[in-house]
Nucleic acid binder design. Structure first.
Ligand SMILES: [Mn+2]
Ligand SMILES: [Mn+2]
Ligand SMILES: [Mn+2]
Ligand SMILES: [Mn+2]
Lengths: 220, 220
DNA sequence: ATAAAAATTTAGACAAATCTAAAAAAATAT
DNA sequence: ATATTTTTTTAGATTTGTCTAAATTTTTAT
């Protein structure tokens, strides 16, 4: 009564991510997330309901039960610990880790994942700045900082834009900065608090103090 | 044209192990190895033939093609590298590693396995003393030594018994030593070359020089 | 060489996860 | 309130890997 197929695990994870985003986990959104057809989702939701991982009301989507939520957190724990391992120990870069972790996350051994956690030094965030649940399923959403006043040479991931004005968004687009971009502060000018930053390890840009104050990041 | 299911991979590995043992990989032996029925094996052999991993003559078993053999060696490489990782980095003991490696061996990324190999320092043998194929599929069968004259406090795995006399086999049975037993030499007496050994990390035994000369081990 | 036994294959069915097409229900627009 | 559009479900088929039971082939024994 405690062993799920890859597919079931992937559905549970997808439902969790939809719920966390504030969406209702309905058939079409799941079909989209799982790259499958609505009819297939309906079949799977019936099955997940039978297994008591979700509550499901036909035509009105589903919700994770407590059991479903624990399972989701366990899979996310595995996924992010493996991403950390790949990045930190095997030297993968952060863009490459996800696809491999998608496979590793389904290896079931509890001892494996807890020993791995210990081996890695109980990391709190994965290479994308996302929090890693502990063995109980608890995780602390990492704090967000304004880029202004951020430490030199440490990486962060853009998670929020302060003011949503078209003018600001235009600048961001031009400098190729968006949600998810990885930013490292290379230099800060004492004079006007403007800074030189590296974006996604690829291109550099110069940004003003006001702009930096409107870019919020979480630490990796 | 280069992606196989868990089941296909497990069949290929089973066929490889039968061939290596000198057996003909026939339907019943495979059914036994795969914990399935003869009829299912027949179906799979047809499929593996279609995929050019084996040659298969109905009623006469199968043989790995060169492609099939490379695949087998790749899966064995993954399996044994993960076993080494679990044992060496995560502190699993050698009896526990196999089951977890059975799952990890199917994670496909080539970069993953080669980086893991590098991270582990290109180990030559797994925790059971079995050789690990390199990225080309080459492996060196580790040398076998007589237990007499073996280094103190190093582990080895029993791989062969010299003389097959009933008298000797009886002693081995009584001392619970068999093929696959892990032996560590704890003490050697200068006087008669007899030794105190630890068997499977559990019980100890005292064995004479003659006995030691008839126990062949490979190094872990 | 023939009969009996053992091994293997075929035939037909099943469960899981998927699909397409059609039907049904819910949401939205007029 | 009715009609239209969108979403979701049902019905029926497909693929993969499995099964049992029956048929066939090979091997062994007489
Ligand atoms: Mn990821
Ligand atoms: Mn991640
Ligand atoms: Mn093993
Ligand atoms: Mn091994």
């Amino acid at each position: 009564m405690d062993n799920y197929s890859f597919t079931e695990e992937n559905y549970i994870k997808a439902i969790y991510h939809l719920e966390t985003k504030g969406d209702v986990a309905n058939t079409n959104k799941l079909a989209d997330a799982m790259q499958t057809r609505a009819a297939s989702v309906t079949d799977m939701l019936k099955k997940l309901k039978r297994k008591k991982l979700v509550t499901y009301k036909p035509y009105y989507g589903c919700n994770l039960t407590p059991r479903g939520k624990s399972l989701a957190l366990l899979i996310i724990r595995r996924h992010r610990l493996w991403e950390f391992f790949l990045s930190e120990k095997l030297g993968f870069n952060w863009q490459e880790v996800h696809d491999v972790a998608e496979e590793l996350e389904h290896v079931g051994s509890e001892k494996l994942i807890n020993k791995l956690d210990e081996f890695l030094g109980y990391p709190k965030v994965d290479p994308h700045g996302d929090p890693i649940p502990d063995f109980k399923g608890n995780m602390v959403e990492p704090e967000q900082f304004s880029l202004a006043g951020y430490t030199l040479n440490k990486s962060g991931i853009v998670v929020k834009i302060g003011e949503q004005s078209p003018a600001l968004l235009e600048v961001l687009e031009q400098k190729k900065i968006g949600i998810g971009s990885r930013i490292k502060v290379l230099q800060k000018a004492d004079f006007d608090q403007s800074m030189e930053i590296k974006i996604n390890n690829k291109h550099t840009a110069h940004i003003s103090k006001v702009l930096a104050e409107n870019i919020f990041i979480k630490i990796v």
